[in-house]
Design a protein around this nucleic acid. Structure first.
Lengths: 141, 141
DNA sequence: GCCAGAGTACTCGGATAATCCATGTCCGAGTGCGTACGG
DNA sequence: CCGTACGCACTCGGACATGGATTATCCGAGTACTCTGGC
């Protein structure tokens, strides 16, 4: 599966969930819409649960639902909940410090990366799940 | 290794290469600075070569060098050369079209993703490899 | 008819097996330099 | 002494193992509905 479709699946999943106090939606049903296995959905939902975006209910008639209204959850929050290292990961093994580039590059790259992510944050914060759901259900592009 | 350190390694590699007409730098030497195996560097350099950013020379005294001056290559170009699906990948398997969400979500997500990437592009286009190299070699943050 | 209790169906959650991708290793293809030989 | 031809050393490029991570399958834990029996 694509390495970074987690975010797309997470957004898709969240759009299917009901607001706080609403009905519980099962991972099986979500998997049917996303066209994947329920375990994939549950894995993602556990991440969203750890971030406080959703809550799960075990047992019969159980499932998941949002912990906050869809209109208050931004796409950036979802992104933050799903990301592990962000779009940019620094070196896995530390570069050779004896090299003039390797010794200092990380510090400079960190600055560029954080500026880029701040820009992404600005854009993604402009759209909430509620707004996106309205767009999708209205059929607007 | 981190899933997305490819970009960092690519930038590090490009900073070590010489401008067009300059000396050839070998993947072994780059690997010594990045602290990884030469094959990893070669794999990344092949991607950069496909994007037209570098050129390779086989045989003795061979190696790689930039195809355009470092001052004309922006961080965004490197990012585009390295990305496979971008930071956001759409569904691997097409969502169930019979679901009101699944049938339309991709179109809307594409819009959000492209807007986000445009923002990243704006930021990353502001820095060229040459400028970054000056920052790094000067020790400035 | 009403209430209580056990049973059952359904769902999440974690543990374990299988598959896929990325990394690492090896060998062949290609190039330039160095050397040796002949003129 | 000079030119040419051969050999060698070095580098990229692709093909084949290996390791880790992601994915898929299975089973246990927990909850609510339901059915049955008694009052």
């Amino acid at each position: 599966m694509g390495s970074n479709s987690r975010y797309t699946v997470a957004v898709h999943t969240l759009l299917l969930l009901k607001n706080p106090g609403g009905e519980w939606v099962t991972s099986d049903w979500i998997a049917g819409s996303v066209n994947t296995k329920p375990v994939v959905i549950r894995r993602i939902l556990r991440g969203l649960q750890a971030a406080g975006l959703v809550e799960g209910q075990k047992g019969a008639r159980g499932g998941y639902r949002l912990r906050r209204p869809a209109g208050e959850i931004t796409m950036w929050e979802v992104y933050e909940a799903m990301r592990e290292d962000g779009p940019f990961g620094l070196h896995a093994s530390t570069p050779n410090p004896r090299c003039p580039i390797g010794g200092r590059i990380q510090k400079n790259l960190r600055g560029i990366y954080s500026a880029t992510e701040a820009s992404m944050q600005c854009v993604l914060n402009r759209t909430t799940l509620g707004a996106l759901r309205r767009q999708v259900t209205a059929g607007a592009g």
